[in-house]
Design a protein around this nucleic acid. Structure first.
Lengths: 334, 334
DNA sequence: TATATTTATGAAAACGGTTTCAAGCCATTG
DNA sequence: CAATGGCTTGAAACCGTTTTCATAAATATA
């Protein structure tokens, strides 16, 4: 397949200089006589030379690869963060290698091993279940950044939104519209995020002196079907409600469909709010109100922070603020 | 940062064998005495050894990296294919490196260069604008697979759906429901896919003896806003229509919203069909009919084909079949 | 039993770069 | 003018593996 590869030595011969000089002009690491520099550059052009990253990685000790571990490729939030990272790395000298942890501790660990074998220069872990201790150990080995997690001992390496606040804000938003019977479709209970959002919901209720009714809470799974089931279930319990707060947009979409099936109008009879503000949310009928997490931006921020980290700069991760994209699925309770 | 790395030499010393032997047991390349093999294995465990992929890539000539170029990270179809590839590669010895070509020939070429520098063992290009000649040259250098493209001279390396047929089937589906005034929201005209889908639409019309009305065709951009604009425009032209065929789901979502704004009911007044069958399509109100392209499966198929290619096996890419997920956004024209 | 073949093993040579080190050159300084 | 210092440069060592090659041991063959 591959024809004889051009190496740095070929360039050196062609330009009548030594390998060292070629390396120097290629990396701008040491001043080089202009004539020689030019000769080298011409040689590179003429021979169509492409440096071998594996070799330079081995020799120089920097693979110029950043490992990125994401979860359940296909889930809106994690995908968006990942895209942000990739986008940020494009046109830098670094390339990302992606592994999927699928929210399974063992698979995550295997993925990390794969990355370490590849001598990644830095590691960005988005979500996941790996324990604190292991993360600390990793952080001691490689520049590490955590997105969507809050790990004590690594606070300055964590980029996350305050999920309690998201739950609180979303619920408070509904309460301020006059709603008091608010269904909450949670995320997967095993995820910290879900629990925090639920707690935010509970806190907002308490603050407004609304008694907690567990029949209004349904454990969902961050997906469409569970959103449908949530509404069906709550209705079958004979519960009245005037608003629904879903732990993410996909389950809100499911809820929306179920309400439609039951002939319940949105927003005149029931208000609906989701989280994520997916691309599709503004195109639902009616356009859906959603809490916006700046996922893509967070990915970009993580990427940039990693680049800084690799240049030994101080990093200062932003605390991303959430805001509610108010649309037409929410209205005053009459 | 990195503490002293354990190398194969350390293992050799610890196990009282030579580096060569260690390499042999690690790769199962040559039989090795059981006692020595065991000693090596124990050493690996005891010292917690992780082989350096860069070094083995350099020495062995296989980087075990597969380059994947996708387009506009964030676009449903391309993302899904990409995910399929990544999913397929998980738990193999190969890792993917991703670059985004953003449908820009120059950026695409740069991306490919990045990948080649990294000594990728194989290349999967999803979509994009790179010319045939260049692709042929690439194919001569590396195992190459093309997804979503049809390139003569590389037929056996192309995995794509018949976009003409998609357009034809979607339109025919509407015609068979009795529709004769069918709006078509195209994709970006510069993309082959869009043109083919449009041609399929035209062919279906002609076959049914429906005169072509250019006012019913709007050039969209595969996104929500252009879907909205399409409907607004056609309506402002004073055109009557009873069905809309959008070149992808996102623009169909946009169309859906615009119809809602204009108080036009779906499907009783206007039927709507999209392409992609995104995760969200079944949760639109009403659930949206869409032509399903098996994007994820195509990604997996591409990944598997690449693995076969790398083992010098014959590959036989499937011709993915499309089918219409019939839901409730389409109905008989009254 | 002597010879031919096979098998397991280690030494050393790649792989394609980067980096250290010392030397050579030139200009500056006292 | 000799000595000092700063630049540029090439030779060689190194990065951590795989792989070739030769050797030594073990087995099969005659």
């Amino acid at each position: 397949m591959d024809p004889k590869k051009i190496t740095i030595q070929d360039i050196a011969d062609y330009a009548n200089v030594s390998k060292s000089t070629v390396s120097r002009v290629l990396n701008n690491t040491t001043p080089v006589n202009d004539k020689k520099r030019e000769a080298v550059l011409r040689a590179v052009k003429d021979l169509d030379f492409e440096p071998n990253s594996l070799a330079s990685g081995l020799a120089g000790g920097n693979s110029m690869i950043i490992g990125v571990q994401t979860q359940k490729i296909g889930s809106p939030f994690y995908d968006l963060v990942t895209r942000g990272v990739i986008h940020c790395l494009t046109d830098t000298r670094y390339s990302p290698i992606l592994v999927d942890g699928v929210w399974d501790k063992e698979i995550e660990l295997r993925g990390i091993d794969t990355l370490l074998r590849r001598q990644i220069d830095g590691l960005i872990i988005i979500g996941g279940d790996i324990e604190k201790e292991h993360l600390l150990r990793l952080a001691a080995k490689k520049p590490l950044l955590l997105v969507g997690r809050e790990v004590e001992g690594l606070q300055d390496r964590c980029l996350y939104v305050d999920n309690f606040d998201i739950g609180y804000q979303a619920t408070k938003f509904l309460i301020e519209l006059g709603h008091r019977k608010i269904v909450h479709i949670t995320g997967i209970k095993a995820h910290q995020d879900s629990v925090r959002r639920l707690n935010g919901y509970l806190h907002a209720l308490k603050e407004a002196n609304i008694p907690y009714d567990e029949d209004l809470v349904y454990e969902g799974a961050f997906d469409g079907p569970s959103g449908v089931k949530a509404i069906d279930t709550v209705i079958s319990r004979g519960k009245k409600f005037t608003a629904v707060f879903a732990a993410n947009d996909m389950s809100a979409f499911g809820a929306r469909l179920a309400l439609y099936r039951h002939g319940i109008d949105v927003p005149s009879e029931v208000s609906l709010i989701g989280i994520d503000d997916q691309t599709e949310a503004p195109y639902m009928t009616p356009p859906m109100t959603s809490v916006r997490q700046p996922a893509f931006k967070m990915g970009v921020a993580a990427g940039n922070a990693m680049l800084d980290l690799l240049m030994n700069k101080e990093i200062d991760l932003p605390k991303p603020s959430v805001q509610i994209s108010v649309r037409e699925s929410t209205a005053k309770a009459e």
